[in-house]
């Protein structure tokens, strides 16, 4: 008990207390530089009635949801491949290969996606020189599509690893038993493998969905005006408009929305998690 206390106290002081402060701020208001400490719900009223905040919040949740879906669906076959088809001695190498790109500077990775997706970027110049298109395609940069592609790349290792770990834990004799009892490969996958891998899929989903909502860099660099998300507004409120209480309100609302959606998701998958 004594041993865990330094770490617990650190978390309490630097996480729990600050979160409580943000929560308190969301009920206060700011008039230029002085904070008015009378409790009020005005910030929340404004957050719910102003269409800017509503649009940003809705878009953030939508983008996070799509990113999560795309990332998990793309990552599952990879985890499955490494776990079931790669020889045991080479699994560590594959995992290492998958994680290396993740250690490139995050900022530069996002910036390079801008270069790849841009007007005369890699994709457009490649397609032009192959003669597949006559003029550069523009629907892949400075919009929500670009944000989805970039974030699906950024979170790839975070989804592959939990699913891989879950797949590795599956007792292979269960699959043989299923085949012996007359199931086809397809039905074995859907009735045995997938349900047993669900804890990994649920973990991967949460690991992508929760941080994505707070991503600031990607929407700012590749999102354009219609790809901005709630984190950009939180940053604007705190650092540019100097309205900490409104920023705190938006942060609290974003946290509540994410937590609620995550809980609902876990609730619907509860039978796999026992």
């Amino acid at each position: 008990m004594l041993l865990v206390s330094p770490t617990a106290v650190y978390v309490l002081l630097l996480l729990a207390a600050p979160l409580a402060a943000v929560f308190a701020f969301s009920f206060w208001t700011q008039d230029f530089l002085t904070i008015d400490r009378t409790l009020t719900l005005n910030n929340y009223r404004e957050a719910f009635s102003d269409p800017i905040y509503r649009t940003l919040m809705g878009r953030s949740l939508l983008i996070s949801g799509v990113v999560t879906l795309v990332t998990v669906v793309l990552a599952f076959p990879i985890a499955y491949f490494v776990s079931f088809y790669v020889e045991p001695s080479r699994k560590a190498l594959w995992i290492f290969l998958i994680t290396i790109p993740f250690w490139t500077s995050y900022l530069l990775r996002v910036f390079l996606w801008k270069v790849i997706l841009g007007f005369n970027g890699v994709i457009n110049s490649g397609l032009l020189s192959l003669g597949l298109i006559d003029e550069p395609i523009t629907f892949i940069l400075y919009n929500a599509n670009a944000v989805v592609i970039t974030l699906a790349h950024a979170f790839a290792p975070f989804t592959i690893l939990p699913i891989y770990v879950a797949l590795e834990k599956i007792d292979r004799s269960l699959l043989e038993a299923s085949r012996d009892l007359g199931e086809s490969r397809m039905t074995t996958f859907f009735r045995v493998t997938l349900p047993l891998a669900m804890p990994g899929v649920v973990a991967a989903t949460l690991i992508v969905f929760i941080p994505t909502i707070g991503d600031y860099v990607t929407p700012r660099l590749v999102g354009g005006p219609n790809g901005l998300m709630i984190a950009n507004m939180i940053q604007t409120q705190f650092l540019k408009l100097n309205n900490a209480p409104m920023g705190a309100t938006l942060a609290v609302l974003a946290m509540c929305a994410v937590t609620a959606i995550s809980l609902i998701f876990v609730f619907f998958n509860r039978r796999y998690l026992r």
Binding site: V4, T7, A8, V11, L12, L14, L15, A16, A17, P18, L19, A21, V22, F25, L206, I207, I210, P211, T212, I213, G214, D215, Y216, A231, I234, Q235, F238, A244, G247, A248, A251, A254, M255, V258
Partner: peptide, 20 residues
């Protein structure tokens, strides 16, 4: 509680420390 920062959006950590 100690492991929570692993999944918390970084902007929330940043903003809350900034406020304090």
């Amino acid at each position: 509680a100690i492991m929570v920062p692993l999944v918390l959006p970084e902007i929330i950590v940043a903003v809350s420390l900034l406020v304090v």
